[in-house]
Simulated assay, not measured.
Amino acid sequence: MAEREFIPVRIAILTVSDSRSLAEDRSGQTLVDRLEKAGHVLADRKILPDEREEIADQLRAWCADPAVDVVISTGGTGLTGRDVTVEAHHDVYEKTMDAFGTVFTIVSMNKIGTSAVQSRATGGVAQGTYLFALPGSPGACKDAWDEILVKQLDYRHMPCNFVEIFPRLTEKMRRK
């Protein structure tokens, strides 16, 4: 079997925080550094407060943008009253990717033990765009990228990956 060529993916990064500025956004920067090192393209980057509707509106805007293939958010996935990122993601998802949260929990257990139960990391698809919500710590972003996303967003990863099914994500929308 011939080796597949790498296909760059266009990724938007959203940091959810009431207090961080771009200069202080270590988690978002961790994701930007990793996606660029992997050969992907930073399509956009924003910081928004922990406001469910604002987050959902931004996710929808990126899903409607043909220049964005993947959205990764960081922050707002915990258990406190202000943590609404997961709910905003679920407001947008057409399909959930339950196994993403499960695999992230397994990866986290190896790093932080039972504290992994506090994460509500999630993944889903909307309008042919992959969406992932990660915790707000740089360590969690490193773990999610290094152990899951770098592989699944690489067309060369076998036996399967997210990139190879991009064309099929919108099958229902094409059918009349």
Rank of each mutant, 00 (worst) to 15 (best):
T129S: 07
R60V: 06
G81R: 13
R52I: 07
K95H: 15
R45T: 04
D83P: 05
D18V: 12
G124E: 04
V117M: 15
G75P: 03
Q58K: 15
F100H: 08
T122P: 01
F100K: 09
F104H: 04
I47V: 14
V32I: 14
V107Y: 07
I55V: 13
S17L: 01
V125N: 07
G75Y: 02
Q118F: 13
P66V: 05
D33C: 08
V16P: 05
P66L: 06
Q127H: 15
M97R: 02
V107G: 02
C63K: 03
R60C: 09
V107H: 03
A43Q: 05
L31M: 04
E51W: 01
S73P: 11
A121R: 01
D83L: 05
C63N: 00
A43P: 05
R82S: 04
L79F: 11
V103T: 10
G124F: 02
D25Y: 02
R52P: 09
Q127L: 10
V86Q: 10
M109F: 15
A56P: 04
L48Y: 09
G78C: 09
I47W: 01
G81F: 00
R82V: 05
F100Y: 15
L22F: 03
G76A: 04
V84Q: 14
R20E: 03
D91L: 12
A61E: 13
T80S: 15
M97G: 07
Y93Q: 03
T74W: 00
